[in-house]
């Protein structure tokens, strides 16, 4: 039984090689290019949906299903056309058993690819972020966005209520993200009207010549760079 399982595994590995060969001819790509492309197509991630990448405009999962059908076809061919019982690995298997064997082999390969992808991501993270404190990590990922929040912390009294002004559209995806990140980094400086207190400072971001946008009754307290400044109320 154990020998048979190993033989089936060996059979599937040969089938995989054959399928990759056909694909490499079809896509005019080398084996290594093909494997790298498949790996890349299976490594995309997002918190709402992990999309499947494409190879020559074909969804990688459709290729995986084609591969599975190819293996099932090979198994069925062996079952029906190989008459020598010693070499017919699938003689006593029903179609559902063959489907199950193929399905578990395919998911085994996918698990292997996932483990490789996860390990590479973990290694990349370790190379980039090991030994850094949280602030340094944010600095590395977000750059000026994070430095600006630290700058604002230095400029304003703790627990100020901060308004935000910009010539950019803060409802656009890019600037909304920047807004939320700033609000998160700045708290307990309140930028999202949590405490419902009167605004006593403004930050002006993503604006050329930002000083022109300083509201009346406020004065410049700090310039982070030419596009981002902080202003504080002068009179109560």
């Amino acid at each position: 039984m154990r020998n048979k399982n190993i033989a089936i595994l060996f059979f599937f590995i040969i089938g995989t090689g054959l399928f990759l060969f056909i694909l490499s001819v079809f896509f005019d790509a080398s084996f290594s290019q093909l494997i790298l492309s498949i790996n890349r197509a299976l490594s995309l991630r997002n918190h709402n949906l992990c999309p499947a990448g494409k190879l020559n405009d074909i969804n990688v999962f459709h290729l995986i299903y084609q591969f599975s059908i190819f293996l099932v076809f090979l198994c069925l061919s062996t079952k029906h056309f190989v008459h020598h019982s010693k070499y017919n690995l699938f003689a006593d298997m029903e179609l559902t058993d063959i489907l199950k064997q193929v399905a578990f082999f395919v998911i085994g390969i996918l698990m292997l690819i996932q483990t490789m992808n996860l390990s590479l991501t973990a290694k990349k993270h370790l190379d980039q972020y090991a030994g850094l404190n949280t602030g340094q990590k944010y600095q590395k990922v977000l750059g000026d966005k994070y430095s600006f929040s630290q700058f604002v912390h230095q400029q304003l009294p703790a627990e100020s209520t901060v308004g935000i002004l910009s010539e950019k559209n803060l409802s656009s995806a890019q600037w909304m993200t920047a807004h939320r990140q700033l609000a998160y980094f700045l708290y307990p400086l309140d930028m999202r009207e949590v405490r419902k207190e009167e605004i006593n400072a403004y930050i002006i971001i993503g604006t050329t010549d930002p000083e022109r946008m300083i509201p009346e009754g406020y004065q410049l307290t700090g310039t982070f760079n030419k596009d981002n400044i902080v202003a504080i109320r002068t009179a109560p």
Binding site: A52, V60, H62, Q114
Partner: peptide, 22 residues
Amino acid sequence: TNLFSTNNWSTVWPIFFICLLK
């Protein structure tokens, strides 16, 4: 599309449906 053509669930859903046949 979500169950069968994304990278969300690997091939767990097809395996589930194959197992249901049994």
